[in-house]
Amino acid sequence: MASRKTSRPNRDSGDKYSVLLPTYNERENLPLIVWLLVKYFGESGFNYEIIVIDDGSPDGTLEVAEQLQKVYGEDKILLRPRAKKLGLGTAYIHGMKHASGNFIIIMDADLSHHPKFIPEFIQKQKEGDYDLVSGTRYRGNGGVYGWDLRRKLIRSLLAEVLYFFIFFLLFFFSPPLPPLVHSRGANFLAQVLLRPGASDLTGSFRLYKKKVLESLVEQCVSKGYVFQMEMIVRARQLNYTIGEVPISFVDRVYGESKLGGNEIVSYAKGLLMLFATT
């Protein structure tokens, strides 16, 4: 805890990293993710704070967060709860208001994003003074645990090349396709159409310079699934520099983020909107 503050190699850089953790029903995962964050920040010696933005979880995530605050200190764990579930973008704005770091790290609190990659993110950022560093599942040692072949096929970046091909064939043969193929395929369509210069568009494990995130969040209008994609596409449009770090994504809750028909439609709308405006 706070007793080992002296003579850390990375303390003196003056940089501070605020980790934004939007939570909803993460009672079991929150203590674990916080423990891991404290462990890896402690080892690497970077200055940090963790901001928990709980959207009125009925399972009492907030109580758990309060206890963690007692364990790790109020300077390390900050609570910015909101009354009900609102958008991700507003969660970032809300959390950032009180963030004292000059860098913001956003990640999921469900343990699919491992804090061990954060020091790598920071290193990468320093290497090229990047405006944002994005975790990618599709490059280098990056990958995913917990997806079967079908899921891999659907989720992996280049499976979406398949979609792109099918997209053209549709004009000739119009074969029926499962909706998930459509939705994930649309993701690659985004790669081909938008060429955003990042291999993982929908990943949400990223490090931003604070002022960069502020300006991006201001401009991003999408919700849900498209939001992460819009952030990185707009970043490229605004000539921000993007670094990438391969991450392993451990999908413990199998079947997470299933896309329904409505989401596919809003995804397609978001994609076309980005296509026409960026």
Binding site: K152, A159, V250
Partner: peptide
Amino acid sequence: SFGCYSLATVGYRVATFNDCEEAA
């Protein structure tokens, strides 16, 4: 030919997709 290229790449990338057993 673009379609064939895509299918080949897809097959390759899916077959070599990193499973991250150790990370789990």
